[in-house]
Simulated scan of single mutants.
Amino acid sequence: MKKLFAEFFGTYWLVFGGCGSALFAAGFPELGIGFAGVALAFGLTVVAMAYAVGHISGGHFNPAVSFGLWAGGKFPIKDLIPYIIAQCIGAIAAAGTLYTIASGKAGFAIDNTKAGAFASNGFGAFSPDGYSLQAAFITEFVLTMFFLLIILGATDKFANSNFCGIAIGLTLTVIHLVSIPITNTSVNPARSLSQAVFTGGEPLAQVWLFWAAPILGAIAAGFIYKNLLQQHGEPDKIVL
């Protein structure tokens, strides 16, 4: 249960901090943090929770990460569904908190006919810059695949684990810098579901892509790392 609570709180903080920055601070008049600020917010939430509770649960905070670690032989299949449920509940709870806070401003309403409403993900007319379903799928697949390759490499027994949280957080920052204009960045099915639940409409109808593409990309990364990259003997010495 401690592992599941760690995943709940870790995912809650990721969605609250990342999506909260997008909702409240990204476009604030004159002082808005913009895309770069939102990207950094997502990265920092992962860094913080990786060091806070990563030692308890492994610090997944993302169903795609759980699938990728399973495919890479680093996570037991019996824990897959419980982790995903805890992550989704944490994400939806965070989205509910954000909705409650946003409702405290006069005139607040979610316009689910616009791209990025309530920090939701989308493609086509619901992509921030009008990218197609195909473009969105490729983006989410490739970025999640590399995200998992970096996670698997940074947490490998031969890697310097003291800095793995920083490497993972910076990677998530870069991912957002690339893909916010394309899909509003998912690479995390729980994060996509949580915002879509409160947005409804077409963003909720499109959420399937933000489960399928990240999970498939993560599974591909797990198999690639396990079969092509993972070091089984003593690591090669680095000559400077």
Rank of each mutant, 00 (worst) to 15 (best):
F28G: 07
V47Y: 11
A25G: 06
L31R: 13
G27E: 12
L40Q: 11
L44C: 12
G43D: 00
A41V: 02
A25W: 11
T45E: 06
V38R: 03
I33C: 13
G34A: 05
L44M: 13
L31H: 14
L23P: 10
V46T: 02
A41I: 01
F28H: 12
T45V: 03
A36T: 10
S21T: 15
L31T: 15
C19I: 02
G43S: 04
F28P: 01
V46I: 10
F28A: 15
F24R: 04
L40F: 15
F24M: 10
G34F: 02
P29E: 09
I33F: 11
L23K: 09
F42C: 04
F28L: 15
M49W: 06
L31Q: 14
S21I: 04
A36W: 11
A48Y: 07
A39F: 07
T45L: 06
T45I: 00
S21L: 12
G37T: 04
V38T: 01
G27Q: 12
G27L: 11
G37W: 03
A39H: 03
F24K: 00
L44E: 05
A48H: 05
G32E: 03
S21Q: 12
A39E: 00
M49F: 11
F35L: 15
M49E: 02
G18L: 04
G18I: 00
L40H: 09
G27S: 14
G43Q: 03
A22G: 15
C19P: 05
T45K: 02
L40V: 15
G34V: 01
A22L: 12
A25R: 04
F42D: 00
G34Y: 05
G27D: 13
A22Q: 14
A22N: 14
V46W: 01
G37Q: 03
G34N: 01
V38M: 10
G27R: 12
L31N: 14
F42T: 00
A22P: 08
F35N: 08
A22H: 09
I33Y: 06
A26T: 00
E30G: 08
F35R: 05
T45G: 01
E30I: 12
V38F: 08
A39R: 06
E30A: 13
G34E: 02
A25K: 04
L31P: 05
A39V: 01
F24H: 08
G27V: 00
G34D: 05
F42W: 08
S21K: 09
G43F: 03
E30V: 13
L44V: 07
V46C: 02
G32L: 06
F35S: 10
A41E: 05
L23I: 15
F28E: 13
F28N: 10
A36K: 10
L44K: 05
V38A: 07
T45S: 10
I33M: 14
V38L: 09
A48E: 07
F35Y: 13
G37M: 09
V47Q: 08
L31A: 15
L31M: 13
M49A: 04
G34P: 00
G27A: 14
G43A: 08
F24G: 09
V38E: 04
C19G: 08
L23M: 15
P29W: 09
G43M: 07
V47H: 03
G20K: 08
A41W: 02
L40E: 10
A36V: 11
F42K: 02
L44A: 11
A39S: 15
L31C: 12
G20H: 11
V46F: 05
